[in-house]
Simulated scan of single mutants.
Amino acid sequence: MGILPKCFGFSDSKQTTSSLYANKYSTQIEELCHRFSLAQLQKSSNFDGSQIIGRGDFGKVYKGCICIQGVAKEIALKRFESNYSKVVSEFYTEIKLLCQLGPPNLVSLIGFCSEKDQNISVCEYMSNGSLADHLLGNRWEPLPWKRRIEICIV
């Protein structure tokens, strides 16, 4: 990443629509990670029910595959389903934090799409499941507390 962002966090001014957020923050985010077009992401995943790999407070996560620098890469696409200002704010906050911090125990952000009232984050696909799967024991035994603490310390 290596690029220092021009701004940490949002200003105090109130934004009420997706387009205001997009205009204000897309340029800052583009300095930090790749911007995908909606057409590119629709080719990688058609966003149907068979490709859902997770659900969150703001939308569904789909599995896809995209060609990056000539190499096919499995990806996870988090599609924010609402266009309310709170959800759009959450989208831009998530993108900025993942770009700036790059936490070692969290998924790596590849890029994003903010186009035609669609807000989608593009992350590496984690074949071993999500952190929630491991903490809650959805698919495996829950992580022991000692390992959880080790992850927090890193």
Rank of each mutant, 00 (worst) to 15 (best):
G2K: 13
I3F: 07
I3L: 03
K6D: 14
C7K: 08
G9N: 01
F10D: 14
S13V: 12
Q15F: 14
S18R: 00
L20H: 10
Y21C: 11
Y21S: 09
A22N: 04
S26F: 00
Q28D: 13
I29N: 03
E31D: 13
E31H: 01
H34T: 07
F36S: 06
F36A: 10
A39M: 01
A39I: 06
Q42W: 04
K43I: 15
S44H: 04
N46P: 09
F47W: 07
G49P: 01
S50V: 10
I52R: 07
G54I: 01
G54F: 02
G54K: 15
G54D: 05
R55W: 02
F58I: 08
K60F: 00
V61D: 08
Y62P: 09
K63S: 11
I66S: 14
C67K: 11
Q69K: 05
G70Q: 11
V71N: 15
A72L: 03
A72M: 04
E74V: 00
I75S: 10
L77C: 07
E81S: 09
S85A: 14
V88M: 14
V88K: 04
F91H: 08
E94Y: 02
I95M: 05
K96Y: 13
K96R: 11
L98G: 07
C99K: 03
C99E: 04
C99I: 02
L101S: 05
L101G: 02
G102I: 08
P103W: 02
P104Q: 09
N105S: 12
L106G: 12
V107G: 08
S108T: 01
L109I: 14
I110T: 07
G111W: 03
F112V: 01
C113E: 08
C113M: 00
E115H: 09
E115N: 06
K116T: 02
K116L: 01
Q118M: 03
N119Q: 12
N119T: 13
N119P: 10
V122K: 02
V122R: 05
M126H: 06
S127G: 10
N128R: 11
N128T: 01
A132E: 14
D133K: 00
H134A: 10
L135T: 03
L135S: 08
L135A: 03
L135F: 15
L136Q: 15
L136M: 12
R139H: 13
E141N: 13
L143A: 00
R148P: 14
I153C: 12
I153R: 11
